[in-house]
């Protein structure tokens, strides 16, 4: 089984469509290595991120995602290799083109919202008066207009989160880096942030999204890269990756005894969520066999769906393969 998975040559498959695209890479990482003491946080990583796309940077905890992002924003310097942002090597000029929402984040507690937004945008080279105007518009849009003169420590966590998001986008960066942007946001605000992200992408902003929420990645990302122990174990166009995994997953909603799914030779694994089952088929198995078994066991089937494997499964699969 594992050997079959390994035989997929992602690089070959997915380089082809992307090479048709002549647009410049928003980020080009070549053979980058970063060591902490003797530990390799990132080793020989090469990565290209197309302009105007949403790119998912995924991986288990400690995979080297944050280290990679920190190198792009020039907080850390790679030991080996080069990084280019929008065709330029990293430098003072590229720093102003990037907006960064770190995972570990906070703001000056004693400053007022508008003040801190203007300060951070001005640090990115934006004129202070213009920053003030944009802060007003955006605070209005995110429902914080009446809090503009409040101090940060008077805000709830979710509100602070929105202010931090604004701080990352106020200077209209060409490259926006968001590390877990949705933690601490309720569904309404998460949707608000998501809409703003898609809007920025449509305006040409390249977005790097690092998150553990696979659902968000599936909804937002055009391409992904999966890191594990500092190495790239999967990258490419999200749709193509899923397609390569084939439609070998069946989602079935039923009422009755689940014993009918005891089908050796057809089912590799099944996960149950109440009366819903997500079934992974063995390769070559006919999904119709499951329907047949349901009829034989007199189980009522309300919904039967052949679907792409969830990114979650691909993630777990690849990471555990990497561990083996």
């Amino acid at each position: 089984m594992l050997q079959i998975r390994f035989s997929f040559t992602f690089r070959l498959r997915f380089r082809l469509p992307s090479s048709c695209n002549t647009m410049m890479d928003a980020v080009l990482i070549e053979q980058v290595t970063k060591q902490f003491d003797s530990f390799d946080a990132v080793s020989s990583l090469s990565l290209g991120i197309k302009q105007g796309t949403v790119f998912g940077l995924l991986g288990p905890n400690g995979a080297g995602k944050t280290t990679t992002l920190r190198m792009i924003v020039r907080i850390l310097v790679p030991d080996k290799g080069t990084i280019q942002v929008l065709g330029q090597p990293l430098g003072d000029r590229t720093q102003d083109l990037i907006g960064y929402l770190p995972e570990e984040r906070g703001l000056y507690r004693q400053m007022r919202i508008r003040e801190i937004l203007v300060f951070l945008a001005a640090l990115k080279g934006l004129d202070e008066a213009e920053a003030g105007r944009r802060a007003g518009t955006w605070l209005e849009r995110l429902g914080l207009a009446d809090r503009a003169e409040d101090e940060i420590n008077e805000l709830s966590r979710g509100m602070q989160q929105k202010v931090q998001f604004l701080a990352a986008i106020l200077h209209r960066p060409q490259l926006l880096i968001l590390d877990e942007p949705f933690t601490g946001l309720d569904p309404v605000n998460a949707a608000l942030v998501k809409n703003v992200m898609l809007e920025l992408r449509d305006q040409g902003t390249t977005i790097i999204l690092s998150t553990h929420l696979m659902e968000q990645v599936e909804q937002l990302c055009d391409s992904i890269c999966l890191l594990h122990k500092g190495r790239k174990i999967l990258d490419g166009n999200l749709k193509a990756i899923k397609k390569s995994y084939g439609n070998n997953t069946v989602r079935i909603e039923f009422s009755g005894d689940r014993a009918f799914l005891d089908l050796p030779g057809i089912i590799e694994a099944a996960k149950f969520y109440g009366e819903v089952a997500e079934i992974k088929l063995l390769s070559g198995a006919d999904p119709q066999q499951i329907l047949k078994a349901a009829v034989e066991h007199k189980v009522e089937v309300r919904k039967f769906e052949l679907m792409e494997p969830p990114l979650n499964d691909i993630f777990i699969d690849k990471v555990s393969a990497g561990d083996a």
Binding site: V73, R74, I75, D92, Q95, D96, I98, Y100, P102, E104, R105, G106, L107, Y108, R109, L120, L123, K124, Q164, A167, A168
Partner: peptide
């Protein structure tokens, strides 16, 4: 210490040396 403990330092250092 405040910049460090509130973690705003990460945003600052991504903008200024």
């Amino acid at each position: 210490m405040e910049e460090k403990s509130t973690r705003i330092i990460e945003i600052l250092v991504s903008s200024i040396k």
